[in-house]
Structure formats: C-alpha cells, structure tokens
Computed example of a mutant assay.
Amino acid sequence: MSRHIVCPACATVNRVPEDRPALAARCGRCKERLFRGEPIELDAAGFERHLTRSDLPLLVDFWAAWCGPCRMMAPVFAATAKALEPRLRFAKLDTEAVPEVAARYGVRSIPTLILFKDGRAVARTTGAMPQAQLEAWIAQALAA
C-alpha cells in the first residue's frame, strides 16, 4: 500500500510506500525531500494540487504580511510543522496574493487556519494561539 504525496519543490505527485519512513522520502523527479519540517508557500495552482492530489491532510494558514497576529502566529505554525510532519502537510497561503482561494473558503479574518482532509475542509479556527493549543486543535480535528 502506498500514499500519494505532492513534492513541495516541484509539485510532482509521488507514490510513497506506507512501510517506508516518510521523513526519508525524496521526490522521484527533483530528488528533494518530501518533508522539510517547515510550512510550504502555496499559490492557487499549488493549493489545488496539494488539496486534490495528496493523501495527506493539509493544514493551511491563511495570512497577510501586514497582519500583526499573522506575524505572531508564523513561528508557532513553523514549530508545529517541525513537530508534526509527516502526519500532515503544513502550508501558508497569502490572502493578498491569492484572494480567490481565501474568498472561496470565506476567509474574512486572519490568521485563519483550515484543515483539509480528503479534499474538503473539516475544521477551521481563527486567531493566533500557542503551540500546545494548536497541536490539541489539530489532534481533535484529525480524530473527528
């Protein structure tokens, strides 16, 4: 059995056997690591690819550069990515650069975190939070 994982560097869909250590997995095309322990930046096309072609849950931080709470949340989000990958993919989407995706999901306040599983939104929260609270929210959302 294998899982489909989208490469964060070249967006190639890779088939990774479930019995293989995910942290050691590399892209078959570009040879980059599939997990870097940090959030990836998404544009509209990258968002669609990771949402629809990957078997991993996708946690997206909708943010903007001018947003103070977003800047406060960034290191927490990065530390949580380092702690929880490869259980899920962590990604950031700039609402100023990709407003159509933010509008599609009704993002009106930032930072907004939306957890996607099997291509659909399953949980959302708004506002900055400490790492322990974020990890608890993720665990609860994935268990539901």
Score class of each variant (00 low, 15 high):
Ala121Met: 08
Cys10Pro: 09
Met129Val: 12
Ala74Tyr: 10
Asp19Asn: 13
Phe35Tyr: 11
Phe116Cys: 01
Ala103Glu: 12
Ala123Leu: 07
Leu113Ala: 06
Leu23Trp: 15
Phe47Lys: 03
Leu134Thr: 11
Gly46Gln: 06
Thr80Asp: 10
Lys92Gln: 09
Thr126Phe: 14
Leu59Met: 06
Arg124Asn: 08
Phe77Ser: 07
Leu113Phe: 11
Ser54Cys: 01
Phe77Ala: 02
Ala24Asp: 11
Glu100Arg: 09
Ala44Phe: 01
Leu34Arg: 01
Ala11Lys: 09
Asp19Arg: 12
Thr12Phe: 15
Arg120Gln: 03
Cys27Ser: 05
Val60Gln: 00
Cys27Asn: 00
Ala65Lys: 11
Phe62Leu: 00
Ile114Asp: 05
Ile114Phe: 00
Arg108Asp: 10
Glu41Lys: 09
Ala128Asn: 12
Leu84Met: 13
Ala22Gly: 01
Gly28Glu: 05
Phe77Asp: 02
Pro39Leu: 07
Glu38Cys: 12
Lys117Ser: 03
Ala22Ser: 12
Thr112Lys: 03
Gly119Gln: 03
Glu100Asp: 07
Gly68Met: 14
Ser109Lys: 12
Val13Thr: 15
Ala24Gly: 11
Ala103Cys: 09
Leu88Arg: 02
Arg71Leu: 03
Val122Gln: 08
Ala44Gln: 01
Pro130Ser: 06
Glu32Ser: 06
Glu48Phe: 08
Arg20Val: 15
Leu93Ser: 05
Val101Ile: 13
Arg124Phe: 15
Met129Lys: 05
Ala123Tyr: 14
Ala91Leu: 00
Gly68Ser: 14
Pro69Thr: 13
Ala91Asp: 05
Pro17Asn: 09
Asp19Ala: 11
Arg26Glu: 01
Cys7Val: 11
Val6Pro: 00
Thr80Gly: 04
Asp61Ser: 04
Val107Trp: 04
Gly119Arg: 09
Ala123Cys: 06
Leu42Thr: 10
Arg120Tyr: 13
Glu18Gln: 13
Ser109Asp: 15
Val6Met: 02
Gly37Pro: 03
Val122Met: 04
Ala45Phe: 13
Ala102Tyr: 04
Ala102Asp: 06
Lys92Cys: 03
Ala78Asp: 09
Arg20His: 15
Glu18Leu: 10
Ile110Gln: 01
Leu34Gly: 00
Met129Tyr: 10
Pro21Ile: 10
Arg26Asn: 01
Gln131Val: 12
Leu23Gly: 13
Ile110Val: 14
Val76Gln: 07
Leu56Phe: 03
Ala45Gly: 05
